[in-house]
């Protein structure tokens, strides 16, 4: 029988057995200190089954409290912590460290195409302005008074089911090369949320939304590079949704 002391040592060894050393390479920017952004490395002992967000928490809580990033629910629903991890837009709270090769430094940057305010925080106003511009709410022409439930068949609901999953994290829009070069483009997220209402049988302003997206900065700027589909943490087929809006524009016009 082992002594209690040995037990404790073994237990401690076992407790830290699964930890690995990971380097987080984070793009830091503080406009009050320097006009330039710099890379900063942080070494962590962390369980590879933890998420990137846990690593960022460890850094903020134990190493450098000035690290600034957004997160709210931390479970992939609120859409606050979209960032560019190892060159790809992902949610930090849904990315496991073991899945992104922890042997090499893990790079974490703010999402591209939006103005960086500090560290990993970007100005989301242009993103949400494009979202507002597509009128993302139910519009009915004659029966504005909600006197009774608006019924819908299961098939009609299924038509736009994919695009209801959007959490507005901006991972798609900030992965779009057209949006990087010209912020006037609506961006995939706004089009996805327009799609959600255009193909909703209860909504009556589909034509109006299609007209908005027929604009110079609308769906026709999409170059089908599929970056948005790759980036979406909810698995929405974003490019397909944009193509369906294009098809609706063509078939409803001719």
């Amino acid at each position: 029988m082992a002594t209690p002391v040995l037990d404790k040592v073994e237990a401690e060894a076992a407790a830290s057995d699964h930890l690995i050393t990971v380097t987080f390479r984070i793009r830091r920017f503080n406009p009050e200190v320097s006009a330039d952004a710099v890379w900063e490395d942080f070494q962590l002992e962390i369980d590879p089954k933890e998420r990137v967000l846990d690593g960022l928490h460890k850094i903020k809580w134990d190493i450098d409290g000035t690290l600034t990033f957004r997160r709210s629910c931390a479970h992939g629903i609120c859409g606050s912590d979209a960032m560019r991890i190892n060159g790809k837009n992902r949610l930090a709270c849904k990315t496991l460290i073991k899945d992104i090769n922890p042997a090499k430094p893990i790079t974490v940057e703010p999402i591209k195409g939006l103005t960086v305010l500090k560290d990993l925080v970007v100005d989301m106003d242009p993103f949400f302005q494009a979202y507002r511009d597509v009128m993302p709410f139910l519009i009915t022409k004659d029966t504005n008074e909600p006197t009774r439930e608006r019924l819908q068949s299961a098939e009609d609901r299924e038509r736009f089911d994919d695009t209801t999953k959007c959490i507005l994290c901006a991972a798609c829009t900030s992965s779009c090369p057209v949006f990087w070069n010209d912020g006037q483009y609506f961006g995939p997220a706004a089009i996805v949320n327009a799609h959600r209402f255009i193909f909703d049988s209860r909504d009556e302003a589909g034509e109006q939304r299609l007209e908005i997206l027929n604009d110079r900065d609308g769906v026709w700027r999409c170059r089908t590079t599929f970056n948005c589909t790759d980036a979406c943490p909810r698995g929405i087929e974003v490019t397909k949704a944009i193509q369906e809006v294009k098809r609706a524009l063509i078939t409803r016009r001719f």
Binding site: T115, P126, A130, D133, D182, G183, Q184, N214, D215, L249
Partner: peptide, 21 residues
């Protein structure tokens, strides 16, 4: 810090009909 070309409420909306399509 201003974004280079950001979309705001004041962004002029060009109405070119179906030209882009």
């Amino acid at each position: 810090i201003e974004a280079p070309r950001k979309r705001t409420k004041k962004t002029p909306r060009s109405t070119r009909g179906n030209f882009e399509m």
